[in-house]
Amino acid sequence: MFEAKFEDGGLFKKIVEAIKELVKNVNLEANGTGISLQAMDTSHVALVALQLNEKGFKKYRCEKSLTMGLSIENLQKILKCSGNDDQITLRTQDEEPTTLSFTFESKNRISEFQLNLMSLDQEQLGVPDTEYSSVVRMPSNEFTKICRELGNINEAIGIETSKEGIKFYVKGDIGEGQVSVKINDTEKPEERVECEVDEPVNLSFAVRYFNLFNKASALSSQVILSMSQDQPLVIEYIIEEMGSLKLYLAPKIND
C-alpha cells in the first residue's frame, strides 16, 4: 500500500514540467523514506535525479518498496486535468502495481485518475558522493537568463570559477561574450551570490541541457552549481521542505 499526498500539487506539476523535455520514461521509486527518480536523458549526456522526503508530504505511507514505471508524457496528460492549487494524492494498493491512482482535490471538486504503468528495465547509475571543488549559489532566474542569452551566441557555454566569482563565456562563429557574476552578501537570500572555490574550474557544456532544465527555476529562487574539473556539473534546485531536483551534466572535452 502506497499513498503520498502533496499539500501543494502545483509543486509536483512544476517538477514534471521541468523534466519532461529531458526524460521520457522513468522508474518512480517509493519506499519508507520517500519518493525518488533517476533517469538519463535520451542522449545519455545528462542524468536527472529527484528526491522527495516523506516528511514533506501532507500524508505519506509506503509499507513496501515500490518501483512504478511511467511515461512522463502520459503523466503530464493526467496532471493537466488538475489545478495548480489542488492537493494531489498518488496511491496504489498492490505490491506489483499496474496502475497508479491520482486524486486531485480542490475546494469545489475532487477528481480521480488512473495512469497505466509499464515495466522499464532501466540501468540505475551510482552517483558517488563527491566533494566539489567549486560550489556556486546564485539566483535561479539570473542563471536561466544567462544560459538563454549566451545560448543564442553558441551552443557550448564555458564556466570558469575563481575566488572572485563565476564567469560564463561563449565563443561562437558570430563572435564571443562573457558574463561575470559578482559575489554579493545581500540580506535578500533569493538575490545572494555565493562562491566556495577550493580549486577553480574551467568547463564547457552544451547549453541546451541547461535551457531545458531551467524550467525547474519555478521550484526555487536559488540554484546551486557544483563543479570539479573534468567532472559532470550538478545543477541543484532545492525543493523547500521536500527535497531536491538535480541535473548531472557531462562536460564537453576539447578534442
Partner: peptide
C-alpha cells in the same frame, strides 16, 4: 567532444 554521463557514474 561531448562525453556521456555513464562514463562518470558506474551503473549500480
Amino acid at each position: 567532444m561531448q562525453k556521456k554521463i555513464a562514463s562518470y557514474f558506474k551503473s549500480s
